[in-house]
């Protein structure tokens, strides 16, 4: 067989892009921001555990939650499966492809060798859609790649069965039932309420708005975790990469969320949401200021406490604006009839 006819498009993020493309393939006309918003994708967490050499932060919900939350709130059913045995995983993937079913798989991004080496890092939570095979090669629709890519069988297996934290274990999924009468109003409301809860009321001090504040307080300590100046500069550059380049749609997913709120305002016929979308766009602009400040510091190699505190201050502003934003967004949803 060869390629299944599939509309490939680049997306802001791999998981929302993959879910959106698969739903579009199954006839559901839905956008990436809508999938992101309904699944309460927007988030923040600042993490530093004893086994981590260096602190890290995330700006979206846990990998996999886009699919599960979207399914829960819309009634779409996905078939999903993990494997211990790579041969079985490959056989079942091939059977689905032979039945013209595109399949999303979880992979270690490092093995996606259609990207240049300098772009590839070990990260076990990348999602791509396999849309066909021919001999020993597979055709891949990857949201971060401008065209359909190809990968050989062995590399795909290595990518699907990479070990380590969040190991993919051959995980794959595809939609099996897409209802024609999805209640988008209800799904959007649940998505917004979920996002407000995650940002404001998660009971741990490193999650949501509290996580942004923790990041603001702790960034001045980053030099003590670095083994040298190059390493520290690399980690500070990664703030910019994580917010702007690593599949966020810019501004740490905040631009994507603003786009969702604009669409939601129309569907819910709620002009207040339109105002909230503008507010979220401004918050995204603020996150971009953080990115630019981080890139500037990394370039200048001035890692003094004062300079790092400047990033901390910008982060604290973001925390304050997101706190008031999500409080009023939550109220808006409670008042919405």
């Amino acid at each position: 067989m060869s390629q299944i006819p599939f509309r490939h498009f680049m997306a802001a993020h791999c998981e929302t892009g993959t879910v959106t493309a698969l739903l579009n393939h199954h006839g559901l006309d839905i956008s990436e921001p809508m999938v992101f918003g309904i699944s309460s994708g927007i988030f923040f967490a600042y993490l530093k555990t004893p086994v981590m050499d260096f602190p890290m932060f995330v700006v979206r919900s846990s990998p996999g939650q886009v699919r599960t939350k979207f399914a829960e709130r819309t009634g779409v059913k996905f078939e999903s499966k993990k494997y211990r045995n790579p041969e079985k995983a490959e056989r079942e993937l091939n059977e689905l492809l032979d039945r013209n079913q595109p399949v999303a798989v979880q992979v270690d991004f490092f093995y996606m060798n259609y990207f240049p080496a300098w772009q590839r890092v070990h990260i076990n939570v990348h999602f791509v859609t396999v849309i066909g095979r021919e001999g020993d090669k597979y055709f891949i629709s990857d949201s971060y790649h401008p065209t359909i890519a190809e990968i050989d069988r062995e590399t795909l297996t290595n990518a699907r069965f990479a070990g380590g934290s969040m190991a993919p274990k051959g995980f794959m999924f595809y939609p099996v039932n897409v209802p024609s009468d999805i209640d988008l109003v209800k799904a959007i409301r649940s998505g917004i309420k979920g996002a407000s809860y995650n940002m404001l009321r998660m009971p741990l001090p490193f999650l949501g708005v509290k996580g942004i504040r923790r990041f603001a307080d702790r960034i001045v300590d980053w030099p003590k975790y670095a083994r040298d100046e190059d390493y520290l500069a690399d980690k500070i550059f990664r703030i910019t990469i994580l917010l702007e380049d690593q599949g966020t749609g810019g501004g740490g997913f905040r631009f994507l969320y603003a786009s969702f709120l604009q669409d939601a305002a129309k569907i819910l016929n709620n002009p207040n949401l339109l105002e909230k979308s503008k507010e979220m766009m401004k918050i995204g602009d603020g996150w971009r200021e953080v990115s630019l400040a981080a890139a500037k510091i990394a370039k200048s190699r001035d890692f003094s406490r004062e300079r790092l505190k400047e990033i901390g201050d910008l982060l604290r502003e973001r925390a304050n604006s997101e706190e008031s934003f999500f409080i009023s967004l939550g109220k808006e949803m409670s008042n919405h009839k």
Partner: peptide, 8 residues
Amino acid sequence: YHQVVLYA
């Protein structure tokens, strides 16, 4: 050589 999708 490195394209991304941003929302704007």
